[in-house]
Computed example of a mutant assay.
Amino acid sequence: MGPLPFPRRGLYVITRDGEPHAALTASVTSALQGGAAVVQLREKLPSERARKAALLRSICREFNVPLIINDDAELAASIGADGVHLGREDVSIMEARALLGARSIIGISCYDSLARAEHAATQGADYVAFGRFFSSVTKPLASPARLDTLLAARSRLAIPIVAIGGITKRNGGELIEAGADLLAVVDAVFGENDPETAARGLLSLFAL
């Protein structure tokens, strides 16, 4: 089975770094039951990353949802993940494409830069991500992004646009209105006692 396509709309959940295996399995399964459309593995420890990636690949396949690996194109290729998410210090889109193949998903962090997003699109990125839009527990020192950037991106890009950074059910609606196709969250789902219910709550924003 080849890589799954990236969705045009929905909830994009990102795992919490350092989560024990049993807790990771339970929380990701719950989020998928709540309707999450994409899962990204974020794990700093190389010794844990491969085991967790293989674990999540199996779970995501059960739900027919793509698994994205943060920062590590080689790992994504080796375990058969559906794609990779790249920041400014990671390998280029062309290098990642050579490792992963033509059908795999490649996403790019664009921070608050429309120029970076437009360049990524011309290089074959499958989606771009802007943020952080609000105060973030996960990345408190990340540079802020503006709603104006989302608005401009919506009018100039054909690929899906992801918004990230401190997103909750209370503030996510304005990002969707400004042009975000997907909302990417960590603690708004995995920081809650019931990730399934939290995921459903965020998904309800897309129906408003």
Rank of each mutant, 00 (worst) to 15 (best):
115 A>N: 07
116 R>E: 11
116 R>S: 12
116 R>P: 04
118 E>F: 05
119 H>Y: 05
120 A>L: 08
121 A>K: 11
122 T>L: 11
122 T>P: 07
122 T>G: 04
123 Q>R: 06
123 Q>N: 00
124 G>Y: 06
125 A>H: 00
126 D>Y: 02
126 D>A: 06
127 Y>H: 03
128 V>D: 14
131 G>Q: 01
131 G>W: 06
131 G>R: 02
132 R>E: 01
132 R>A: 12
133 F>Y: 12
136 S>C: 13
136 S>N: 01
137 V>M: 09
137 V>I: 07
138 T>M: 01
138 T>A: 06
138 T>Q: 05
139 K>C: 02
140 P>K: 09
140 P>L: 06
140 P>A: 01
140 P>W: 08
141 L>A: 15
141 L>N: 15
142 A>Y: 11
142 A>I: 12
143 S>I: 14
143 S>N: 05
144 P>W: 03
144 P>M: 07
145 A>P: 02
148 D>R: 14
149 T>P: 02
150 L>E: 03
151 L>M: 10
151 L>S: 09
151 L>W: 04
152 A>T: 15
153 A>W: 06
153 A>K: 13
154 R>T: 04
154 R>W: 06
155 S>N: 14
155 S>C: 06
155 S>I: 00
158 A>V: 06
158 A>C: 00
159 I>V: 01
160 P>R: 07
160 P>V: 02
160 P>F: 01
160 P>H: 01
161 I>W: 09
161 I>V: 15
162 V>Q: 09
162 V>K: 10
162 V>H: 11
162 V>W: 12
163 A>T: 15
163 A>V: 15
163 A>F: 09
164 I>A: 05
164 I>S: 07
166 G>L: 04
166 G>A: 03
166 G>H: 06
167 I>A: 01
167 I>R: 00
168 T>R: 13
169 K>F: 09
169 K>H: 10
170 R>D: 15
170 R>W: 04
171 N>F: 04
171 N>K: 05
171 N>W: 02
172 G>A: 14
172 G>W: 10
172 G>V: 09
173 G>F: 12
173 G>S: 12
174 E>Q: 15
174 E>R: 15
175 L>I: 07
176 I>H: 02
176 I>C: 07
177 E>S: 15
177 E>M: 14
178 A>Q: 03
179 G>A: 10
179 G>P: 09
179 G>N: 10
179 G>I: 04
181 D>W: 12
182 L>R: 13
